[in-house]
Simulated scan of single mutants.
Amino acid sequence: MGRYIRYVILFSCCIFIYGSTHAASVRCGAEQTDKYLPLLSGKRVALVVNHTSLIGNTPLPDSLFSLGVRLTGIFVPEHGFRGTADAGETVRDGKDVRTGLPIYSLYGQTKKPQDKQLENTDIVVFDMQDVGARFYTYISTLYYVIQACAENGKPLIVLDRPNPCDTIDGPVLQHRYRSFVGMFPIPVLHGCTIGEMARMINGEKWTGKHRHCQLTVIPVEGWKHGQPYSLPVKPSPNLPNDTSIALYPSLCPFEGTAISVGRGTTTPFQVIGSPDIHIFNFRFMPQSLPGFDKNPLYKGKYCYGLNLQGHNPADKGFTLKYIIQFYDLYKSTMQDAEKKFFTRPQWFDLLMGTAHVRHAIIRGKSEEEIRKGWQEELEKYRQTRNRYLLYPDYNE
């Protein structure tokens, strides 16, 4: 036991040195080993992690393994353990070459830990960097992990991290549009850390059948809502920097349209365009790019549109102005614009969490008029959110 304590002290010192150079005084939950290692002592531990699950520059599984924590397996979400799988690409089971641990995919045939996979586990630890948007699927993975832990009587520890898109905006998801890109009635930008979201999922019993998980959240130190936070590593292949993360909530719904969001370029979610419109001077050509996208929309074709790289990353929020702008261009330049623009209307509606937005755009409604339609539900959501906050809220 004395050796264990010495490891904890040494590890905490390393974390302090790292924390002094990264994000000032912000310390993520994973870095605060003194708070959760005692909870893991003598336990068989399963991890739900990916490439963002770091202590300093070291992956969490490697750190815990070196500290003698008894690990039983690693569960991984969309984009895989090392964060290199494309969006929507199946992630397969495997074995971690560094620790020898089995890797179980939560983005393939099943998105939920199976009872058999948890048989030899006493406790589950979840650590991933979310970006604060409803359709970013790490919170959907969190949902299924909470459900599995509740069903199997396994305690869950969530190691919290800041929300880089920390604001509340957009339509609230309607139940009929529930999918893996929207599991619960929250707006596009939900204004929660992943730890607060875990508390909300658990507290509101969104996992169904009155299930409740024994949940512990290790909060972030030195952070509050609205405080800027720059991610030390990209959370997924096509969110390479702060600008792409800030624009992602507003540009992701374009995935249900004929407009490219720059997948297959080095500036994804920072450029938008289409081969159908030639009125813009700016153009880009998607290609098969390892580490970004292997088979992007309009591969090998010039897309004409907007370069948004000058967008201020501090300007975070949700806007419909780009979608309305491009829909109006389609409407003014071609027949049957609705079908040619909304190429995957059902997918667009799933991302929005409602069909009202698409129908309103088609009817020619302004963004201000469309926004009025979701304000009442947004206010109800704010009241729900308040019950699960772990940090001082905006303007406090």
Results as ranks from 00 to 15, higher is better:
V97D: 14
Y144P: 00
T167K: 09
N120R: 12
G83L: 10
K43E: 06
V125W: 01
E89M: 14
G153W: 13
P102T: 06
I55S: 07
A148G: 04
D93Q: 08
V91K: 13
R92M: 13
R70C: 06
G153Q: 10
G132M: 11
A85V: 03
G56M: 11
R92W: 10
T84H: 06
N163C: 14
T58Y: 04
K154Y: 08
L39G: 02
Y143R: 00
K116N: 09
Y138K: 06
I146T: 04
V91G: 06
S63Y: 07
C149H: 05
H51D: 03
F75M: 13
L60N: 03
Y144W: 14
E119H: 07
T84F: 07
I103L: 15
N120D: 15
D160C: 09
G132R: 11
R98L: 13
D86P: 04
L173W: 01
P38Y: 11
E119K: 15
T141M: 05
A133G: 00
Y144K: 01
L64R: 06
P155W: 09
K116V: 13
V69L: 07
L159I: 10
Y143G: 00
K111Y: 13
Q114K: 14
A150P: 02
V124L: 12
V76W: 06
V97H: 12
H175A: 14
R134Y: 04
T137H: 09
V91D: 04
R176Q: 15
G153N: 13
G170D: 03
L156F: 08
T84L: 13
L54S: 06
L118G: 00
I74P: 01
T121M: 04
L40N: 02
D160W: 08
E78S: 10
S53C: 08
F126M: 05
L118M: 07
F65K: 11
V158H: 03
L118D: 00
F126Y: 15
N120Q: 13
G170I: 09
R178G: 02
K111M: 14
R178A: 04
N152V: 02
M183Q: 05
K111V: 14
T58A: 13
I139P: 00
L60E: 07
Y138M: 06
F65S: 14
A85H: 12
R98T: 11
V158M: 05
F126G: 01
P113H: 03
R176L: 08
L39A: 08
P162C: 10
P61F: 08
T137R: 08
L173G: 00
F180L: 14
D127T: 11
P77I: 14
D169A: 15
F81Q: 10
I168N: 01
T110Y: 14
V145L: 07
I139Q: 05
F75L: 09
Q117R: 01
F75P: 00
